[in-house]
C-alpha cells in the first residue's frame, strides 16, 4: 500500500493555497478494519480521522514544499488543531483546502478546512454538489535541515518521494524536483 492520502491536487496557488481531493472507496483495505463487525453491530466502514489529518498534512506539506521548489525537507511537526465532526463513508469525496498562515526559513504554519461531498448531495443531475464543512485542521511544519539541534540528514529529499511526484504530474502541476 502506498502511503498517499490524497488523489489529486485540483488547485495550487504558490505560497498561498492548495486544494486536493480524496475519494473514499470500499476497495481500500483499511476501511474493512475500521470498524469490523462485532457481535452486536454490522461492519461500519468509515475513514479514520487520523488518516484525514494525514491527508491534510500531505496537502499542506506539498503547498509548503512547493514554496521553495521542494528544496526543503518539509516534515509535519505539530497538529496545532484538529476538529472533525462527521465520519466519511465509502463513496464520499473529501476536499482538503490548505492555506499558508506563516512561512519562515525554519518552517511554516498552515490552516486547513475539510469538506465532505456526500454522493446523495453531489452526483445528482438536477442540482449542484453541496459540500459540507466537516473539519478544521491547523498544522505546523518544520524544515528538517534547519532543526535547532543541528542534526544532519541525507542530502536527498526523502520527504517528497516518487509518489508525490506522480500526484503532481497527474494533477498537471509543473515542478522541477
Amino acid at each position: 500500500m502506498r502511503w498517499m492520502w490524497i488523489d489529486r491536487v485540483i488547485e495550487l496557488k504558490a505560497k498561498e493555497r492548495l486544494v486536493a481531493i480524496k475519494h473514499l472507496s470500499m476497495a481500500e483495505e483499511h476501511l474493512h478494519d475500521h470498524f469490523p463487525a462485532t457481535a452486536t453491530r454490522p461492519q461500519l466502514p468509515v475513514m479514520p480521522m487520523s488518516l484525514i489529518v494525514e491527508g491534510m498534512a500531505q496537502s499542506a506539506g506539498i503547498l509548503v514544499g512547493h514554496a521553495n521548489d521542494f528544496k526543503e525537507k518539509v516534515v509535519l511537526a505539530k497538529v496545532a488543531k484538529a476538529s472533525l465532526t462527521k465520519d466519511p463513508t465509502p463513496g464520499c469525496t473529501l476536499r482538503y483546502t490548505a492555506t499558508i498562515d506563516r512561512f519562515t526559513d525554519n518552517g511554516a504554519s498552515t490552516k486547513g478546512t475539510v469538506d465532505l461531498y456526500h454522493p446523495e448531495q453531489s452526483y445528482l443531475d438536477d442540482q449542484p454538489a453541496q459540500p459540507e464543512r466537516i473539519g478544521e485542521i491547523d498544522l505546523i511544519f518544520s524544515h528538517l535541515d534547519r532543526n535547532s539541534a543541528g542534526t544532519q540528514y541525507p542530502k536527498e529529499n526523502f520527504v517528497f518521494s516518487d509518489s508525490f511526484r506522480t500526484i503532481l504530474r497527474t494533477s498537471g502541476i509543473e515542478s522541477s524536483f
Binding site: A77, K78, R102, T104, N106, S109, I140, S142, S148
Partner: peptide, 9 residues
C-alpha cells in the same frame, strides 16, 4: 522543541 517554532509564529 517544536513548540518553540509554534510559539515563535
Amino acid at each position: 522543541s517544536i513548540d518553540i517554532l509554534d510559539i515563535t509564529f
